[in-house]
Design a protein around this nucleic acid. Structure first.
Lengths: 190, 190
DNA sequence: GTCTATAATCTGATAGAC
DNA sequence: GTCTATCAGATTATAGAC
């Protein structure tokens, strides 16, 4: 297996473990056993665990940015774009009670370097900005009913999405996450 | 120092560390050094770390239940009660970028026993129920404007509160948490 | 209740051979 | 790139003295 494949393999496992259990809850050993390599090989790609965290953040931000851009290009109006974003978040994080990677690393913020922490802040800022623009677009194209302050609604929405993913991990209601995200959609439905 | 004082002291430190850094991010050693006792003494009160987690959950649920009951008794209408709840959450968790104890333990759910995990689910359910009743009360007494489905609004509110506390830990905007919670209040203002 | 002592394991990390 | 070997220290936890 060449360099790129192993590196990707490490990150895939680390991403899943972070979103499922948290960044503190797995070790290089856990990853090495699943891949079938030694921990020293992981250190070759990610000298410290903080390097791994930062790589995960960079990758996650790229992935979601690309996803939102695809949504902008393929959905005709604000309402459909917002709906597409919710589905993307569920597809990325919702299964098996996983938390958004950036949400989990915010909870585990002591484990990430200051530069990576800053990127987490930028992630949420970008997420809010995209949502604000999408809501404004929806009001303009008539697919979303009038909102007093789209920027405020967007802030509430992003917080509610992250919070719903957090609560869903322990919630007693089986369909809590899709049902709660659907309430957000119902709120802007014209 | 007698039994009750030491036990309380341990829980106070563990609670703060959990809400600040996460349940995986501190050890019995960290607590022992801050108190000035040995780790074996902590094991005397909490044989396993999971016992400590469950005690923290029980205590936190009691504390917040009492707080919400006090709010019900001392505030005249639904709007003021809702506002009092937001202030209680900020006072309890908002300082120094702490996360709600139950929110953090939901992120760290692998570290808590199944019974304790169940209590986390009950906590969020109770929180939603209290919020639903408060919103209904507010609509009835005229302090909150009409809501199509108070139970849905309450679910969004609770998710947004938990999510806002999570995002606030890394957010680049200094007043993100109070400002975002204020948006929730503005939404129900008549 | 608090201590000493200790167990058994895990942790992130590095040096150097191949 | 991946391995072996190793490190120094941390972790949860227990047994038993005082």
């Amino acid at each position: 297996m060449n360099k790129l494949d192993t590196k990707t393999h490490i990150m895939d496992i680390a991403r899943r473990m972070t979103m499922q259990q948290g960044f503190d809850a797995f070790s290089y050993r856990d990853i090495s056993e699943e891949i079938g390599i030694k921990t020293s090989s992981i250190h070759y790609y990610f000298p410290s665990k903080q390097d791994l965290a930062e790589a995960l953040v960079d990758d996650y931000i790229d992935y979601l940015s690309q996803g939102l851009q695809n949504i902008n290009e393929n959905f005709p109006n604000g309402y459909e774009r917002f709906k597409g974003m919710l589905e993307l978040m569920i597809a990325t994080s919702g299964q098996e009670k996983q938390l958004c990677l950036c949400g989990m690393l915010s909870a585990n913020m002591h484990a990430v370097s200051e530069p990576a922490r800053h990127k987490l802040g930028e992630f949420f800022q970008r997420f809010e900005t995209w949502t604000t623009e999408t809501l404004k677009q929806g009001v303009q194209d008539g697919s979303i009913h009038h909102l007093v302050r789209p920027v405020s609604t967007a802030a509430e929405m992003v917080a509610a999405i992250e919070g719903a993913m957090l609560i869903a991990r322990v919630c007693l209601r089986p369909n809590y996450l899709p049902e709660t995200l659907d309430l957000l959609l119902a709120r802007i439905r014209p």
